[in-house]
Design a protein around this nucleic acid. Sequence first.
RNA 1: GGCGGUAUCGUCUAGGGGACUAGGACGGAGCCCUCUCAAGGCUCAAACACGGGUUCGAAUCCCGUUACCGCUACCA
Length: 484
Amino acid sequence: MADPLAPPRVRFAPSPTGYLHVGGARTALFNWLYARQTGGTFLLRIEDTDKARSTDESERAIFEGLEWLGLNWDEQVVHQALGLARHQRDANFLLETGAAYRCFCTPAELEQLRKEAAARKDSFKYDRRCDLLAPDEIKRRVDAGTPFVVRFRVPHGETAWEDAVHERIAFPNKDIEDFVILRSDGTPIYNLAVVSDDIDMGITLVMRGDDHISNTPKQIQLYRALGNEPPRFAHVPMIHGMDGKKLSKRHGATAVADYQKEGILPGAMVNFLALMGWSPGGDREVMSLEEMIALFSLDGLQKKAAIFDTKKLEWMNGQHLSRITAMQLEPRLTSALLDAGIASREMLISRHEWYLGLIDLLKVRARTVLDMVRQAAPFFPGPIAFDPEAVEKQWKDRAASSGILEAVRNEIANLPSWTPESLEAALRALAEQRGVAAGKIFHPLRVALTGLSVSPGIFEVLIAMGPELAAKRLNDAIGFLNAA
RNA sequence: GGCGGUAUCGUCUAGGGGACUAGGACGGAGCCCUCUCAAGGCUCAAACACGGGUUCGAAUCCCGUUACCGCUACCA
């Protein structure tokens, strides 16, 4: 920590080897919230030193995921691979200062040593044999072009730090082996690259998953050997699946893009993610991004892994759906509607007021925007399917149902005014006239209009549909019933 | 195996020595509202892993045990 008063600099450092995972998104979110609250800087670094696994597509997926969530980063994106020269310089510096040494052991030899240790039921730790090589022997091998890796010589003692979420964590150095920092091909290993980059980027707080706890003592040693004070560390808990294991594809969707496709709002996703491992205290749950920025605190970070519960995510989404305005929701629903082929852009533009009203009608009882798409279909001209269960339940007696629908069609066709009140009055009167409960009219009518047994209030449905479409839906239903 | 981490309702969590008969939320059960479904309101079931300390007093502090998780690569 160079200057405790300087604004913090934090980073999110994913490796581009897949999609943006919800766990990664959550780590990014915490860093982002911290930076935004403190007036600090949030940086993005792509850890692409593993050429074999890194792809441009995954890098794009990470950008798109973060953008969708609204987690904008400051400054230029850093690509770790571009720091190669500096990584090598740092490794050489450590070699020169004697903090590191060359190791000529081949992977095969190492493998053999591991096997032997396993046979003895010992835990393997590199025995430093190459550190014992005489200087002229080392020179001879280097001159002969023998490949070598660079290993960091872990000093005696203990490495400890005050973690922002765990308090003090300490490792006896004897348990840390002399780890490799530079491969025989001259490329850096993770721990070196991370420390070199974090120093270079001026990172003051490293907030990351707690699966990095055991890397931390190695990194602290590197900071010191490189002549730098280590930053603060905050190790946040993992996110697990419902079975308590690390969240993976087996648990269903783990990519934030999957939730985007399923119609989760970014605000809800971020809100839900924030609550996995963080609590503002009290009973606060549904929050906007702004509220979270204001409330965020390292003190509220949880130590325990959280289990990803999609049920609660959906509930959260429902909450955000009901708080958001039709206007705010419009762009997201529009693209979903277009994708589903339910409406055309022209249709939505030409009846904009009506469209906004429809959104208000639907969003109350939807949990995702995909729910809304499903519920929106009947309000557009395309044909609808009659849900078999709804038919079974509400149109049990086909002839009678058909009769009711015809009566309704005639009744509302001649209505002088087309308002919720006039429609309700007319339909209730019809029920009375036929000597049946109002529900006996409303329910079959709902199936006729929407094909479903679930919809907004029936009069609102009629209004939103308008006389023309409603008549068409009724005729279709009557035709369906008479044909059967 | 070694090392490290964690442990409050099924799940997310509040709690930071007395206010705890352990609070809220999701999910579950039920009731109310009601043309259906949501939303909303109300009610119920549901937890301090175990064992020792420390203390007048422990969910809260300490130590063990157990369970779970992570790391243990020339991956990140």
